[in-house]
Measured scan of single mutants.
Amino acid sequence: ELREAFRLYDKEGNGYISTDVMREILAELDETLSSEDLDAMIDEIDADGSGTVDFEEFMGVMT
């Protein structure tokens, strides 16, 4: 189920989504998050600083 959700956002099928897209997902899930909260969450999610979120990083957030 998580893989299907990931595929919805990984429109190009390249195995990752951008941190911008991940930020939008988080904002949709919790509309009360401030910009600073979102920045901090993205920094934590994208631990390797690649600017992308792969499936493993995505799973870590969603579980």
Score class of each variant (00 low, 15 high):
residue 42 I to S: 02
residue 3 R to Y: 15
residue 15 G to F: 04
residue 37 D to S: 08
residue 1 E to G: 13
residue 48 D to V: 07
residue 12 E to G: 06
residue 59 M to W: 09
residue 60 G to P: 04
residue 51 G to V: 01
residue 43 D to Y: 13
residue 22 M to A: 05
residue 5 A to L: 15
residue 29 L to Y: 12
residue 34 S to C: 06
residue 32 T to H: 10
residue 54 D to W: 10
residue 58 F to D: 00
residue 52 T to W: 09
residue 24 E to I: 12
residue 54 D to C: 09
residue 57 E to D: 12
residue 45 I to D: 00
residue 17 I to H: 00
residue 19 T to V: 13
residue 25 I to A: 05
residue 62 M to N: 02
residue 6 F to A: 01
residue 49 G to H: 13
residue 47 A to Y: 09
residue 7 R to K: 15
residue 16 Y to F: 12
residue 1 E to C: 15
residue 47 A to P: 14
residue 42 I to N: 01
residue 32 T to K: 10
residue 16 Y to A: 04
residue 11 K to R: 09
residue 62 M to P: 03
residue 33 L to V: 04
residue 31 E to K: 14
residue 46 D to G: 03
residue 22 M to H: 01
residue 37 D to N: 08
residue 44 E to Y: 11
residue 43 D to V: 11
residue 7 R to H: 15
residue 7 R to L: 15
residue 61 V to I: 13
residue 14 N to W: 08
residue 21 V to N: 09
residue 12 E to K: 08
residue 9 Y to D: 04
residue 47 A to K: 15
residue 20 D to N: 10
residue 44 E to W: 13
residue 26 L to R: 00
residue 44 E to T: 12
residue 47 A to M: 10
residue 37 D to F: 06
residue 54 D to G: 15
residue 39 D to Y: 04
residue 4 E to T: 04
residue 23 R to S: 01
residue 26 L to P: 00
residue 44 E to H: 12
residue 6 F to L: 03
residue 11 K to F: 09
residue 13 G to W: 03
residue 3 R to I: 13
residue 28 E to A: 15
residue 27 A to R: 14
residue 29 L to S: 05
residue 26 L to F: 05
residue 5 A to G: 07
residue 60 G to S: 15
residue 61 V to S: 05
residue 55 F to P: 01
residue 30 D to P: 03
residue 57 E to Y: 09
residue 6 F to W: 14
residue 31 E to C: 12
residue 21 V to C: 12
residue 30 D to T: 09
residue 58 F to A: 04
residue 17 I to E: 01
residue 45 I to F: 05
residue 8 L to R: 14
residue 19 T to I: 14
residue 53 V to N: 00
residue 32 T to N: 12
residue 24 E to P: 01
residue 54 D to S: 15
residue 42 I to R: 00
residue 41 M to E: 01
residue 1 E to L: 11
residue 46 D to S: 07
residue 20 D to M: 11
residue 48 D to C: 07
residue 15 G to T: 01
residue 58 F to W: 09
residue 15 G to Q: 02
residue 32 T to P: 02
residue 22 M to E: 00
residue 57 E to C: 14
residue 24 E to M: 14
residue 15 G to N: 05
residue 37 D to P: 01
residue 38 L to Y: 01
residue 20 D to H: 12
residue 10 D to Y: 05
residue 52 T to A: 06
residue 52 T to Q: 11
residue 24 E to F: 10
residue 36 E to A: 12
residue 47 A to R: 13
residue 59 M to H: 06
residue 49 G to M: 07
residue 16 Y to K: 06
residue 36 E to W: 09
residue 17 I to S: 00
residue 2 L to W: 15
residue 20 D to L: 13
residue 4 E to F: 02
residue 55 F to D: 00
residue 39 D to V: 04
residue 38 L to F: 03
residue 28 E to M: 14
residue 26 L to A: 02
residue 18 S to C: 06
residue 37 D to H: 06
residue 46 D to R: 04
residue 22 M to Y: 02
residue 41 M to R: 07
residue 40 A to M: 10
residue 27 A to E: 06
residue 1 E to Y: 13
residue 25 I to M: 06
residue 42 I to W: 02
residue 3 R to C: 15
residue 50 S to E: 05
residue 12 E to W: 08
residue 21 V to G: 05
residue 46 D to K: 05
residue 27 A to L: 10
residue 50 S to D: 07
residue 4 E to S: 04
residue 4 E to K: 06
residue 52 T to L: 10
residue 43 D to E: 13
residue 16 Y to L: 05
residue 52 T to I: 10
residue 17 I to L: 06
residue 15 G to R: 01
residue 20 D to Q: 14
residue 29 L to D: 02
residue 37 D to C: 13
residue 1 E to Q: 13
residue 56 E to M: 09
residue 27 A to I: 10
residue 25 I to C: 04
residue 9 Y to W: 12
residue 55 F to V: 05
residue 40 A to R: 15
residue 34 S to W: 04
residue 23 R to A: 02
residue 52 T to H: 12
residue 4 E to W: 02
residue 6 F to Q: 02
residue 58 F to P: 00
residue 25 I to G: 00
residue 12 E to L: 08
residue 14 N to R: 12
residue 32 T to E: 08
residue 27 A to S: 11
residue 50 S to R: 11
residue 18 S to H: 10
residue 63 T to D: 07
residue 27 A to T: 08
residue 38 L to N: 00
residue 55 F to T: 02
residue 27 A to W: 09
residue 44 E to M: 13
residue 1 E to I: 11
residue 48 D to M: 07
residue 47 A to C: 14
residue 7 R to G: 14
residue 39 D to F: 05
residue 40 A to L: 10
residue 37 D to E: 12
residue 44 E to I: 12
residue 49 G to A: 07
residue 27 A to F: 09
residue 51 G to N: 06
residue 60 G to M: 15
residue 11 K to C: 13
residue 24 E to V: 12
residue 13 G to A: 05
residue 25 I to H: 02
